[in-house]
Write a protein that binds this DNA or RNA. Structure first.
Lengths: 258, 258
DNA sequence: ACCGAGTCTTTCACTGGCTGAAAACGCGGC
DNA sequence: GCCGCGTTTTCAGCCAGTGAAAGACTCGGT
């Protein structure tokens, strides 16, 4: 879960940060120590330094949570707010036209990370959260990112267990490969009820100047009054707009898998 | 600039993160070491660990930038994306009604930190950036946050140098105090051409359940076709909506300064 | 091809910041 | 008042981290 060497000071410090999750965004010192796998005095000392710097903040009751200072520097992540900033106008347009959920996501390892989400108040409920992760094989953005991912990644994802979220979730590796092939030929992905039965999403790839797929946009609508064929061009137009805004592409999306 | 003790390992590590700024979001190892004030081998070792964890990422050319993993955990900051998430629908509404710039900000020490910005494509240009900072005494959101800040903060800000951005910027401490008093009685702030001459902003306070002002929303419009008195109710309505969404208030905004 | 200027990476002996056990502190509940 | 739980501080030992220096690498210039 952490990735760093737990024995080093830096590793322990980062483990403290990693202890915070969407389910537990606020922790006591003891919880922090337990979750990070460090002793209590260590957690206390490291946390104190993080607080002094602004990476963590302390509530009046003494609980810890992620600090604004960390959020500030983290907002410099090119794949985070950088991408988001460039995409925002296009996502706005998508939202205004459709009044549905608009999502922007990138791939991190074998998962999707949602970078932005505009949720219509009346739109269909989605499970996702900005900064949250999800499996690649079910969502619209996930299918796009997987379709254009390096072959090693595809093999790794399709070789491991594919979770089932609804009856419609495609979990057979061979079937998923067919879906991915379709995504590549059509240039967009459709996920119909694969995450929640009432939601359908249409996603398209965003490419950088080298032609590599670096992100994906999607529109998530109610499954019943949805027509993927109509939505696709709109989503693709937004994706192309964003691609242009981030400097690319000089050539067409790269096809890592023939 | 850093705030942490440079002598400790954690301090040095955090200094590395602090080396990244909006003007320099991507650094070579040497630049990183220089900016963070650490020796080159130290920068190399610490950076390597940060990369292993995902706090930093390395470009193919060997340069460093903030990593997505850090962005993910940082997105758990309650005053960052937490607040943003709750505010988004209201900001959307504001944007759709007015088609102008919508801003959401909090106070961090003696400065404003912008948490969200929806920029109309045709709206007036603003200097601000999500994750960026600005002085408290000039912007609309800044005036609101300053007006409801603890007296110590007000004194500290008004006691130090107040930068002038345009001819209209109010830089006299006494004059600013009058402005702040007006903000508190009216319940909203107007900044007319104080940051850039062609922009006017109207801002209103967002309060939490204890009645404390924790954030501010503003609308930034062209100075010529602007009527603050008309805009104020709209902005205030959004501010109240957001306040309700984050759980508060049980009572009215607190007045720290009689 | 050779060379120097720059950057990045690795080595190595030393040292001082970090560590964990334990004790002291603070606070709400019975 | 006393107990139980979580937090904070102390202290001696030790190992992770450190800087200087050398080695590797990549450029442009000649």
């Amino acid at each position: 879960m952490t990735g760093g060497d737990e024995r080093s000071v830096t590793g322990r410090t980062l483990a403290l940060l990693a202890a915070f999750t969407p389910d537990a965004p606020e922790l006591t010192l003891s919880e922090l120590a337990r979750r990070a796998g460090v002793t209590l005095p260590t957690a206390h000392r490291r946390a104190a330094e993080l607080v002094a710097w602004g990476a963590l903040e302390r509530t009046p009751e003494g609980r810890y949570h992620i600090g604004l200072r960390l959020w500030e520097v983290a907002s410099l992540a090119p794949r985070g707010l950088g991408l988001r900033e460039a995409s925002m106008p296009f996502l706005e347009d998508l939202y205004e036209i459709t009044r549905e959920n608009v999502q922007l996501a990138v791939r991190e390892g074998a998962e999707v990370v949602f970078v932005e989400r505009i949720a219509g108040r009346a739109a269909v409920a989605v499970l996702t959260r900005v900064g949250g992760r999800f499996a690649l094989h079910a969502t619209g953005v996930g299918l796009v990112l997987l379709a254009y991912a390096p072959v090693e990644v595809q093999d790794r994802v399709l070789g491991s267990r594919l979770d089932r979220y609804t009856d419609k979730t495609v979990t057979d590796p061979v079937a998923v490969r067919t879906v991915l092939a379709n995504v590549r030929t059509r240039g967009y992905a459709v996920s119909d009820g694969q995450v929640t039965l009432d939601a359908l999403s249409v996603a398209a790839p965003i490419v950088d100047r080298t032609g590599e797929v670096v992100a994906a946009v999607s529109l998530v609508v109610h499954a019943d009054h949805a027509d993927p064929a109509t939505l696709a061009p709109v989503v693709q137009a937004a994706a192309r707009g964003i691609s242009r805004a981030i400097g690319g592409p000089r050539k067409r999306p790269r096809m890592p898998y023939i």
